[in-house]
Design a protein around this nucleic acid. Structure first.
Lengths: 141, 141
DNA sequence: CTACGTCATTACCAAAGCTAAAGAAAATTG
DNA sequence: CAATTTTCTTTAGCTTTGGTAATGACGTAG
């Protein structure tokens, strides 16, 4: 791995952590934490999942996921049904209302990030656009 | 702003938050939180700074920064001196030991991220390398 | 020189995740 | 097929980390 690669990786790390902290302040639904939003996003992508699966996908411990799901259910954003074959497990799925919140959140944060990105020139923005899918893949690897 | 731009921004947001959460688990110095690391990084870049400046740069409230600095001072990673002109203020600077920890942390997280990046092909990695400085600029804007 | 603003700090509080352990159900083994 | 072990979720209690409100010291403007 070259020196340039190391620099890139370091910048990537620093940027991700800093952006995450700043994005945290831009939530549309004040009562929903970033991880709760992440769960809704995962459910929107995957349809259904068990608490254990969600915990693994969100890199959180199972007890934390249990509480997050309880919160979300209480707010009507998520449904819990018994697993058809395994009575230990539970199947979680998101509701229509969750989809609306996701859309609104996306809109709002896009606006914030877009405004921030006005400090970039066209070439820089182009590089970001080219790398965005790669970043996404990396983060979900 | 085009549809592609919106997608890019959305991917950026999701990726940053997810990567940040995963990086959080890769700390070399277990006793140092991500924000504490961020402060050391900022001090390494800027030399000296007052608590207020650091709070603004790290997007944290002043009382939180006071506590972070107290922690870091207790561990010998940071020095506090009176401000030469303004006796209300304090000037914080990092120690040699902090520099060592930063290097070790950089090495360790680079290794983790590099390993993760092995799931990317050469073209993807190239795009990331091109975008890394832009991301860094964006995050610090 | 008095009143107001600013900086750091202190004291208290809330959010969010973790570990340990319990309880139920499935899988495995003798 | 009974007993043990494993797996999945949940409960309970703790820790970390950041926030808000209030305080005290210092600078600054009227």
């Amino acid at each position: 791995m070259s020196e340039d690669d190391l620099v890139a990786v370091s910048q990537l790390r620093s940027s991700a952590m800093r952006l995450a902290r700043r994005l945290r302040h831009q939530r549309v639904e004040e009562s929903l934490s970033p991880t709760e939003m992440g769960v809704l996003g995962t459910l929107a992508r995957c349809g259904k999942a068990t608490p254990g699966e969600l915990a693994r996908k969100e890199h959180v411990q199972p007890p934390s996921m249990t509480r997050i799901i309880a919160m979300l259910e209480e707010k009507g954003l998520v449904r819990r049904e018994p697993h058809p074959e395994d009575r230990r497990q539970v199947v979680v799925s998101s509701t229509e209302q969750a989809e609306q919140i996701l859309n609104e959140s996306r809109r709002r944060r896009n606006a914030w990030l877009a405004e921030l990105a006005e400090g970039l020139d066209e070439d820089e923005w182009e590089r970001l656009r080219a790398a965005a899918p790669v970043l996404y893949k990396l983060a979900h690897l």
